[in-house]
Structure formats: structure tokens, C-alpha cells
């Protein structure tokens, strides 16, 4: 069996399996390695226990989740892993929230339902950016 180096490592932070499953299928098929957690607290635990956490190429994060919400988790990501691009994928089309998250350094704000092309385009852009400047802090 031929082994291909993954195009990048993506951390999915999403409580609903009905959302995680198609993202996992789409990203895996597109050549990405996928890590999955179901809430912000788990995401923080995974990152803290992963010595290569900073090598995660993109975090795709929901907002409304049980335990630590997406907003709390994003604040943590931006503080401890400022070079890792964060993309929000949420069910709430909220312009004010999107603007506020962008100010915190979130690279994109996608609202569900999003097409595969849109999702892959955003992920590819983030992974490319992280690949080019792996240690650069995203303002």
C-alpha cells in the first residue's frame, strides 16, 4: 500500500457526530490527517498532551458546545498557539460575533451548511499559510 505524507493535520472541535463525520470523510479523502474532539475542554486537553501541538496546521472549531464553549477554546488557542490558524464553523450566522472573532485572529468564519468546495478551499489556504510560516503568530 502506497503511503502519502498527509497534506496537513487538522483538529476538528465539534460536538455533533453528524457534522464531524462528513468533515472527517471529506478532509481524509482530500489527504489531510484528522484529529477529532467533541468540545473545547477536550481540545485543550489534546493540545496540552501533544508535544507536536504547534504542528497542527488548522483548528476547525464550532462555537456552541457543551463544557468549554468554542469561544473559550478559541481564546485559549490564540493565547497558547498563536501560529495555528483557527477557522470557525458554526450554525449561527452572526455578523457581530464573526467580526469579534476575526479581531481575535480567527482566519475564517464559516456558517453551516457549507459546501465541500468552500470548506476545502478555506482549509487549504490555512494549511498553506501555516506550512509557509509555521512559527508566525497570526495577528
Amino acid at each position: 500500500m502506497e503511503w502519502h505524507k498527509p497534506r496537513g493535520r487538522i483538529l476538528i472541535v465539534e460536538d455533533e457526530e453528524q457534522v464531524r463525520k462528513p468533515i472527517r470523510l471529506n478532509l481524509t479523502k482530500a489527504g489531510y490527517q484528522v484529529l477529532e474532539v467533541s468540545n473545547g475542554a477536550e481540545a485543550i486537553m489534546v493540545l496540552e498532551g501533544d508535544p507536536d501541538a504547534a504542528m497542527i496546521d488548522t483548528i476547525l472549531c464550532d462555537i456552541r458546545m457543551p463544557r468549554a464553549s468554542g469561544l473559550e477554546a478559541i481564546t485559549y488557542f490564540r493565547k497558547h498557539y498563536p501560529s495555528v490558524p483557527v477557522v470557525v464553523l458554526t450554525g449561527y450566522p452572526d455578523v457581530e460575533l464573526a467580526a469579534s472573532l476575526m479581531k481575535q485572529g480567527v482566519l475564517d468564519y464559516l456558517t453551516k451548511p457549507v459546501t465541500r468546495e468552500e470548506l476545502l478551499a478555506v482549509i487549504e489556504r490555512c494549511v498553506d499559510q501555516h506550512g509557509l510560516f509555521p512559527n508566525a503568530s497570526i495577528a
Partner: peptide, 16 residues
């Protein structure tokens, strides 16, 4: 939120 989550699942699964 409650509708957009499964709507995404429906759309994405249909694409797959």
C-alpha cells in the same frame, strides 16, 4: 443551530 447542523450533514453526505 439545531437545523443548520443536520443540514450541513445532509449536504455534505449528498456531495460525498
Amino acid at each position: 443551530h439545531e437545523i443548520n447542523n443536520p443540514m450541513y450533514g445532509i449536504l455534505a453526505m449528498a456531495e460525498i
